[in-house]
Design a binder for these strands. Structure first.
Lengths: 350, 350
DNA sequence: CTGTTAGCGCGTTCAT
DNA sequence: ATGAACGCGCTAACAG
């Protein structure tokens, strides 16, 4: 027989304590009658292995019920196959749709996602990032372009591909897949103004992007000679109650708007509810403009207008860009701008 | 100066290739002037380290911006600090609330969650599980008690603590935190029957739990002498459209219900919409009963009744039970039954 | 196409 | 209270 050193032989070191399942490559290798590395190859790079041994390995794997340990694999290969995704909330369908699409696409490519819910708080984002960076994710997706200083610093020095999305800015950390919220605000203003509306008002959450849209609206209106735009700004999270309260406040402050522009469809629904309870017809007496997660609202309230965002599409796009980046690690600063990411849905006209 | 061996000194092995950030314990140890293991202790078990060295280590960590590699840590310690959570969807607030609460609580205890969205499909659940088991999660949370054979087998043989929730059964895999959907159905039937309703109908998704509730309802009604309960059952996902279509179907099939019991609030909203478009007053002409994610619906439709589930509470409870289990790894089969998990919200009476 | 050698970064023994 | 050795399970190189 060929050489076979028996230096550390006698004290058979196998099966020390195995309470439940401590199956490793070695176990599979023994069963398949090949070396551990061959098992590894058969699993990860089948094209480098002969069909015969491939089959042997497959059988062995199925027989013993082996599941590779990705921690070990990741440690050795420096690829965690993990993508961190940060969202403000998953309670809005606009975000859950996006996350869903993103996770699906990444999943097909063998990547799993780990979710961080920031609640619109930069501090929370920062602390979550700290925890998640320990997993050495292969990619990071963030909503928005505003982050704490430490967050930015960690992000850049980590060298991990980063996608900022859902917004637009001039100095992205890395990859940017977004659209301009100011442009949305301006578009809404222009649209409504063209329709003949003159008395505008706003009910908006105070999150960064809502504020941007509001600013865009106000700025466009002022260019068109409308300077007075009563606003109700509240702290997130956006709820129906905030919407109801918002409209009440507008009225009790003496405003008499023709149209209320809201920072989200949830808010818009609240406004609609309040309008209904006051006997106002929508859109004849009062037009309402929403934003975002039209999934439910649009079907229930044909009177509601909205800026529609296609969360699925954005999620899919992010996945695509990110996966592409994983391949050609070379090129940096892939900047993608989707300002066609939103669609104005008009149901304002009576 | 004190002793300082220089055995492996000359060939400085540091800084071989460090494209971005390859900081390790060793780097920190050098800066802090202690051994790597001491850094590890300072970070994980500070009580075993003197205040002085603790401080030195802390400073060094902050200085170089070290973030521990959990893959390596997990491999060595056999603790991934990861919990896998499977849900049918995150588009229903009832689930997103639960997930949210769960993630928050686990996060405070140092655990991160990895989400699997099954879309009510056992096959999807199975394949997701296969992928996620590779991460060696410390715990697994599943919605429902129905799983594929392979899923169950892998779950038990993995030896990982498993929580099944949102449902109830007699032979849980491990831990069970749920309530009986049949009991919910019966409770709804009893409640409405007591109110005087006699002509019932159902619009339900065909997911396992919806069907159970429907069965409970029908069975209770039949005990009360009502045998005819027209039903519209559709394939998930539940949407407003399904609700609208459901009510239409009922009418076109010649039914004339006093009350429609729906498998979810989303469906109920659809029914309400259809009712409205037919000029039916709710609940005078037609009462509607929902289930689950009342977050939005309840406020908008004071006419809508519903069984309310407190997702936050369930999520918190799961986290509590799971974390407890992580400590006393000894005791098995911790069975917890929450049949107070639902609340009947009555707005049916005119 | 397959096996050998040598770590990945850390925590668990044991020592001291 | 601190350190030295060893191994977790796997993969990157290089061999053959």
């Amino acid at each position: 027989m060929p050489r076979r050193s028996i230096e550390k032989a006698p004290e058979a070191p196998l099966d020390k304590t195995r309470p439940t399942s401590g199956l490793t490559l070695i176990d599979v290798a023994k069963v398949a009658g090949v070396s551990p590395i061959t098992v590894s190859r058969a699993l990860n790079r089948p094209e480098l292995v002969s069909d015969l041994t491939l089959e042997k390995v497959r059988r062995a794997v199925a027989l013993v019920g082996y599941i590779p340990n990705m921690q070990a694999g990741g440690l050795a290969s420096k690829q965690s196959k993990l993508v961190a995704v940060f969202v403000p909330t998953i309670a809005h369908s606009i975000f859950s749709d996006m996350v869903q699409a993103l996770m699906d696409q990444l999943g097909e490519a063998g990547y799993q996602s780990i979710l961080g819910v920031t609640g619109y708080s930069l501090e929370k984002e920062e602390s979550l990032l700290g925890a998640i960076l320990g997993r050495r994710p292969d990619g990071i997706v963030l909503m928005g372009t505003e982050h704490s200083a430490l967050t930015r610093q960690r992000l850049v020095s980590s060298g991990i591909p980063v996608v900022e999305t859902w917004d637009f800015c001039e100095d992205p950390i890395d990859i940017l897949v977004g659209f301009s919220h100011e442009a949305v605000g301006k578009a809404v203003a222009g649209h409504l103004h063209d329709k003949g509306y003159r008395r505008f008002s706003v009910v908006s959450a105070s999150d960064a992007r809502g504020i941007k849209r509001c600013k865009g609206l106000v700025s466009e209106l002022s260019e068109r000679g409308i300077t007075e735009v009563p606003q109700v700004i509240f702290t997130p999270p956006a709820t129906l109650k905030e919407g109801r309260a918002g409209l009440s406040q507008l009225f009790s402050a003496g405003s008499n708007p023709e149209v209320v522009v809201c920072s989200s469809d949830t808010v818009a629904q609240g406004v609609l509810a309040e309008a209904a309870s006051r006997g106002l017809r929508v859109p004849e007496d009062l037009a309402v403009m929403g934003f975002g997660d039209m999934g439910s609202a649009a079907q229930l309230y044909p009177a509601l207008s909205s800026v529609r965002l296609d969360g699925e599409r954005v999620g899919g796009l992010i996945a695509k860009v990110l996966l592409e980046r994983f391949r050609n690690q070379g090129d940096q600063q892939t900047q993608v701008r989707i300002d066609t990411g939103f669609t104005l849905i008009d149901r304002v006209s009576a």
